[in-house]
Design a protein around this nucleic acid. Structure first.
Length: 733
DNA sequence: AACGTGCCTG
DNA sequence: CAGGCACGTT
């Protein structure tokens, strides 16, 4: 260690006072001098004698089980939601058909043999693809239909893909031996008639290429095109055949249905009150007719949205059909046997209902559990500290509870409503308290008239003694996860304030929460998707939920990689985004002195270069600067307020210092500040306090000792921060 | 020399 | 928050 004091003395003369301390960020290299000094400091400050340097083994996601349950539930619910999106609508029908196949199994052999099970769903799929492909080719290959894709569908797609490939090869060979007398228009027709074997994108590129090609090559393309045309015609014939078979099967089923149900149902059908059967047959017949009577182009005209509408109607009808026999009372037992169409729809509806019920009830249970814990004075009853040690980092939906409506109001999109506390004036500006002793400024409960009111609108107990802030102040920020620590924080204060719960967890939270996370997700997603060619036609709202990796894999699987921009091929970003800044700020709650290597691992989605690295380092430098400025400011303020002992200095989630810091690093207040940060902040504050009290601030380099202490207090940053999507995960759950 | 840090400034 | 600077460390 160089002699900082001498250098500082020298530089004192200079215009700029240099207070470089060369704080090393590696823990192991701290000098013995500082270790001793620190020990002295702490023993002086901290009679309890707990050791600062205790290494905290951070147990990640200690509450993971609960959060996972919720996450899974929500995701499960989402997958159903996804299934209700326009595109997957077709998949629902495919699922129905598949279900039918499974359910009926041996009892309905005709169904299996009819081709409805495979070709039928294939038709659906391809209809949709070709339909959308004309407007926006990539949509066909977009992953939006994938989440619900079954193994069955996958296999089918593979087969299809192979078939298409083979066809292309054959066509090329054929085209080489064919006469070059084919009209150019053939290509156009082919694209419209049989889009399923030549991907729209391919056709498009072909078209583009053609314009640039010389005459000779154009001819060979025409040959190729005509060959394909023939092949498509053949396929089309086969398809028609299959569809006609399907029609037959459906008619048979319809007849069966009518036999089972009395004439009332039949009348309903005619009235437009469609039963499940007529609904199904309507869809399929429409298709069959399309394929037979119209051009294939028209066949593609079916709006994908109609699928979902029909699917919904189908489910409704199924439910109605389900209830009917019950109302009739005596027919209860007779249904399952002869009714061959009931089981599949029933099964789907029941599964859906069951899943939704389970999910909902579990979610409600979880939430109610947390909320019911709120009024109790004993948090540990619900979250015993020892069961969830080190829960300073919570990735749990329950953590949203400490958000309040007002806080959340501050973060709609990027519109931040300024927190009055953000403009908290400097110490010197403040009117000295009339008095002191018992009214430390750092307590939120301190009735500081010079300060704006607390932003969350909680009511302070009228006769609560403001003199014992941490003990008596209900913490509106308090979260239900206590942390295990061994820090020299005033034990009584910590314990008491841990027991306090926020009392204003507003009811509109769930709503706000949704909007908040949506806005965040939108920001994240739009950022990623803005570079992405795979789904150009999709508004961000539909694309939000998709992870980049999913899109990537989709593109990789199904698209010509050469068509993909460098961005979609790799998640690496050229520069740092506002979200990276936000993430860095949240990381500051854990580490004040991250090494550049650490930054590289935690910002893995950024293409690192010297500039990026130094920018990130600069960020943290700026964070520290703000942090230490606040600390000094509040320490001086405390001294001015007559505080004489560090014992009186404690940082809670209510105190102004905390709020200032929180506003700076966690403006939207959508992240739960780890308990450890409060502890570190308290230590820092006390360090400053003691130094100032001791008059050390006359030395220009007086802060270096404090920096040295604080740089040792970094804790491990949770693993989740390594994820490029951590913001979504952190703030969503 | 390259890098990291803190201070100051805008 | 970033740029510029001085300085310490490697």
């Amino acid at each position: 260690m160089p002699d900082h004091d001498s250098t500082a003395l020298l530089s004192r003369q200079t215009k700029r006072r240099r207070v470089d301390i060369g704080v090393k960020r590696t823990v192991g290299t701290a000098s013995a001098f500082f270790a001793k000094a620190r020990a002295t400091f702490f023993s002086a400050m901290n009679p309890q004698g707990s050791e600062q340097d205790v290494e905290y083994s951070v147990v990640q996601h200690a509450d993971g089980e609960k959060s996972n349950v919720l996450r899974k539930l929500l995701k499960r619910a989402n997958s159903y939601e996804d299934a209700m999106m326009p595109f997957p609508g077709a998949t629902i029908i495919s699922q129905l058909l598949k279900n039918n196949m499974n359910k009926n199994g041996g009892t309905e052999p005709s169904f299996q043999a009819s081709g409805l099970s495979s070709t039928g769903s294939e038709v659906h799929q391809e209809d949709i693809c070709s339909n959308s492909s004309r407007d926006s080719p990539p949509e066909c290959l977009s992953p939006f239909g994938r989440p619900t894709m079954s193994q069955f569908d996958m296999d089918r797609l593979c087969d299809e893909h192979l078939r298409a490939k083979r066809a292309r090869v054959e066509n090329i060979i054929r085209g080489m031996s064919h006469s070059p007398s084919v009209a150019l228009r053939g290509n156009e027709n082919e694209r419209e008639m049989a889009p399923q074997s030549v991907s729209p994108r391919e056709s498009y590129r072909e078209n583009k290429r053609k314009q640039k090609l010389p005459q000779q090559q154009q001819q060979s393309f025409q040959q190729l095109v005509s060959a394909r045309k023939e092949q498509k015609r053949e396929e089309r014939r086969q398809l028609k055949q299959q569809l006609e078979d399907m029609q037959k099967q459906l008619r048979q089923l319809q007849e069966k249905f009518y036999q089972i149900y009395d004439s009332t149902d039949s009348e309903n059908d005619e009235d437009g009150n469609l039963s499940e059967d007529s609904m199904r047959s309507e869809i399929l017949e429409a298709r069959a007719q399309d394929s037979v009577g119209r051009s294939d182009n028209e066949m593609c005209e079916l709006d994908p949205g109609q699928f979902i509408d029909r699917a919904r109607a189908l489910i409704r009808e199924q439910e109605m059909a389900e209830n009917k026999p019950k109302r009739e009372g005596s027919h209860k037992e007779r249904d399952p046997g002869p009714n061959s169409l009931q089981p599949e729809g029933k099964h789907l509806a029941e599964t859906l209902k069951q899943e939704l019920n389970t999910a909902m009830s579990q979610v409600v249970d979880t939430v109610v559990k947390v909320f019911s814990a709120k009024p109790s004075r004993q948090v540990p009853q619900v979250f015993p500290p020892l069961q969830i040690p080190q829960a300073r980092f919570a990735v749990n939906g329950e953590n949203h509870n400490f958000h309040t409506a007002n806080q959340r109001l501050q973060c709609f999109g990027d519109v931040i409503i300024p927190n009055p506390l953000d403009t908290f004036g400097s110490v010197q500006m403040r009117v000295p308290q009339t008095r002191r002793k018992p009214c430390p400024w750092w307590s939120a409960k301190t009735p500081r008239t010079s300060l704006p009111p607390a932003p969350r609108g909680h009511h302070q107990p009228l006769h609560q003694s403001p003199c014992r802030p941490p003990r008596a102040s209900p913490s509106t920020f308090r979260h239900p996860f206590p942390s295990l620590d061994g820090l020299p924080v005033s034990e009584s204060n910590r314990c008491s304030h841990r027991l306090l719960l926020g009392k204003d967890r507003a009811s509109p939270e769930s709503l706000d929460l949704t909007r908040e996370t949506t806005s965040l997700r939108t920001k994240m997603s739009s950022h990623h998707l803005s570079h992405h060619p795979c789904s150009p036609a999709h508004p961000p709202s539909t694309a939000e939920g998709l992870s980049l990796s999913l899109i990537k894999s989709e593109c990789g699987d199904l698209q010509d990689m050469s068509e993909i921009s460098p961005y979609s091929g790799s998640a690496m970003q050229e520069g740092l985004s506002p979200n990276h800044l936000k993430k860095a700020k949240l990381m500051f709650f854990y580490t004040r002195y991250p090494s550049s290597n650490m930054l590289k691992t935690y910002f893995s989605d950024v293409k690192f270069n010297r500039c990026i690295t130094s920018q990130l380092i600069k960020w943290f430098s700026n964070f520290r600067e703000f942090y230490y400025i606040q600390m000094e400011k509040y320490a001086r303020q405390a001294i001015n307020d007559g505080v004489t002992s560090t014992e009186e200095l404690s940082i809670t989630r209510d105190c102004e210092l905390y709020r200032a810091l929180n506003m700076h690093y966690n403006k939207a207040n959508d992240f739960e500040v780890p308990e450890r940060f409060l502890e570190v902040a308290q230590i820092t504050l006390r360090e400053f306090f003691n130094a100032i009290i001791a008059g050390k601030d006359v030395d220009p380099s007086w802060k270096k000792a404090i920096y040295k202490v604080i740089c040792k207090l970094d804790s491990e940053v949770p693993e989740i921060f390594k994820s490029p999507n951590c913001l979504q995960e952190l703030l969503h759950e």
